Amino acid sequence: MKTATIPATDNEYLIGKILCIGRNYVDHIKELGNETPAAPVVFMKPASAVIGSGEAVVIPSCSNDCHYEAELAVLIGTDGKNIPEAEALSHVAGYGVAIDMTLRDIQDGLKKKGLPWDIAKGFDTSCPLSDFVPAAQVADPQNLTVRLTLNGEERQNGSTGLMINGVARIISHLSTIFTLEEGDIILTGTPAGVGRVVAGDRLEAAIDGVATLSVTVA
């Protein structure tokens, strides 16, 4: 079983649901040619998709167009259902950084057929995830900078303040659909600058004051 860790407090959580928000930064929506959604776009990854820093992303043989998407990750520490937005952040145990690896060619093909695209988002190793810092260490989750470098070259650099739906609103919205449970993780969307990786590439995602995550592509 996969776990999420907050080293500063020696707390470890069994990872439950990984709930992901798509199309949450305007510039990223534009770069993919998508429409701005009226409500948060939600998809899921299984816990089996998680790998840690220092491990390798393995691109399935069915794809030739795997993309990175660096994101702020939110670890739920307290169960909740129908959580008011004003109370949402009190349910957060910690913050980290994740890379949502996406098989873009598989995703696009399935979307054109009107089919679910779980395969494109949930394959093994598709969720590199850092350790977490305590929630109290992050004064404002909407005042962070998400960065990603590919082979040492910066590709993503965007403020969480540019989210269409902020962390508190995301938590509140998700809790009307799913009971949020201790150990659930929310990926909050990615800023512009996503792109393709190939075998041998090195990815480093970072949020200052939160975490750094480094993986290779096998």
Rank of each mutant, 00 (worst) to 15 (best):
D140A: 04
A206D: 06
N157W: 05
G114E: 05
A49I: 01
R155A: 02
N151W: 03
R147P: 03
L144K: 13
I207S: 04
T125S: 07
L103F: 05
V58G: 00
E154A: 04
I207T: 03
V198K: 10
T9A: 01
R147V: 04
V26G: 04
M44V: 13
G77W: 09
V74D: 07
L187V: 13
P191V: 03
E85N: 08
I170T: 05
A168D: 11
E71G: 10
N165K: 14
I76H: 03
S48G: 04
A168F: 05
E35I: 05
A199K: 15
T212I: 03
Y95V: 13
L115F: 14
G94F: 11
A135R: 10
A218R: 05
F132D: 10
E204H: 11
V167R: 02
G193T: 14
D108H: 13
V41L: 14
H173N: 12
G183F: 03
G161P: 11
T145H: 05
D105F: 08
K112L: 14
S61E: 15
G122I: 04
L187Y: 15
K17D: 15
T149Y: 01
A4V: 00
S48Q: 06
G122N: 04
S175R: 13
A4L: 06
E182M: 08
S175W: 12
C62R: 05
C66T: 09
T160M: 13
C20M: 11
V210A: 11
L72H: 12
V194C: 14
L129T: 00
R202I: 08
I185M: 15
N157D: 10
L180I: 09
I106P: 08
A56W: 00
N143Y: 07
P116L: 13
D184S: 08
Q137K: 15
